[in-house]
């Protein structure tokens, strides 16, 4: 064996990683934010809540002796649903609530592939409709809570973000959820609405923001984690998640006019325990359940 190939290999090993490092400007493949036609704001607003919130739901008692209840819920509901589950388990002896959180779109796939669930709480209607279309849902979904978007930045604010316009500044490292995740879609819609006002935000706002996206995460909590760690300069999450981030993150408001409000639908899953599901949904819609949710930064359904 001659020594030359090995020497070349060694040289490549030393040089290659050095060449790959450096300033973080993704050189290839820009996935632009695709905005709908200019007439969009009204359309986007109209498309929001299809189902109306259930008015003053009747209280439904859990079956005598409890049972095992499995709830699949959007990642943003984690803390609120954990508290609701704990309260229900404390007041209903024999009731055991299992919670499974994830991106709503991943939960739909899991349910479709046969995961056993009794209740599905989604962060948007598109995923609830996808679940309905594949026959996973029993009954009519109802809106149980709403959630606005907010920009989160690390407390040290390395990107110097003060308002949405700053997201377009050169070199800002922005992390969004991917466009198939509800919060990722809402975030892009909000950015499109923002860009539709070129007087306030300048021409090419959406393109500039799109060029700043460094990562597209699988759910809202992954976005938050990247900001908490300080890896990203900014992320767009729900207001409720911004609160979960605690002292590690600061929240920057997105103006009402360009914000998107997520309406969360909840429904019983076909093939699940209907009685347990009905009781859980009724509790979530009750004043107590709504109180827990608003305590975590959500807005009431009504």
């Amino acid at each position: 064996m001659t020594r030359r190939p090995l020497v070349a290999l060694l040289a490549a090993a030393f040089l290659a990683p050095a060449g790959l490092a450096g300033p973080a400007t993704p050189a290839t493949a820009q996935v632009a934010i695709e905005c709908p036609a200019p007439a969009s704001p009204a359309a986007a607003a109209a498309s929001a809540p299809a189902a109306t919130p259930a008015a003053a739901p009747a209280e439904v008692a859990f079956p005598e002796g409890g049972g095992d209840l499995t709830v699949f819920a959007a990642a943003s509901l984690t803390e609120a649903f954990e508290e609701i589950a704990a309260e229900l388990e404390a007041t209903n002896p024999g009731l055991a609530v299992t919670l499974n959180f994830g991106g709503s779109q991943a939960l739909v796939t899991q349910i479709e592939q046969g995961a056993e669930a009794d209740v599905f709480a989604s962060a948007n209607f598109a995923q609830m409709e996808a679940a309905e279309e594949n026959g996973s849902i029993a009954g009519e979904p109802v809106v149980f809570v709403r959630n606005k978007l907010a920009i989160v930045v690390p407390t040290a604010n390395p990107g110097g973000i003060g308002d949405p316009a700053d997201l377009a500044a050169d070199g800002v490292r922005l992390v969004l959820a991917n466009p198939d995740v509800p919060v990722g879609r809402y975030a892009r819609e909000a950015l499109c609405l923002t860009g539709a006002d070129p007087v306030a935000y300048g021409e090419g706002f959406v393109e500039a923001v799109a060029a700043n996206i460094v990562s597209e995460e699988e759910d809202v909590r992954d976005v938050l984690a990247k900001v908490e760690l300080g890896e990203a300069d900014a992320g767009i999450v729900y207001v409720s998640d911004a609160l979960v981030g605690g002292e590690a993150v600061s929240q920057i408001e997105i103006p009402e006019a360009v914000n998107r409000v997520a309406a969360y639908p909840i429904a019983a899953v076909a093939g699940g325990d209907a009685a347990l599901a009905e009781a859980f949904i009724a509790y979530v819609l009750s004043p107590e359940g709504q109180g827990v949710l608003t305590g975590f930064g959500f807005e009431p359904a009504g």
Binding site: A16, P17, L20, A21, G22, P23, A24, P26, R173, V214, S215, E231, A232
Partner: peptide, 14 residues
């Protein structure tokens, strides 16, 4: 020093 590794291909290699 102006070098960030996170979100780059170098981070994948590391």
């Amino acid at each position: 020093a102006g070098v960030t590794i996170g979100f780059t291909t170098a981070a994948v290699v590391l």
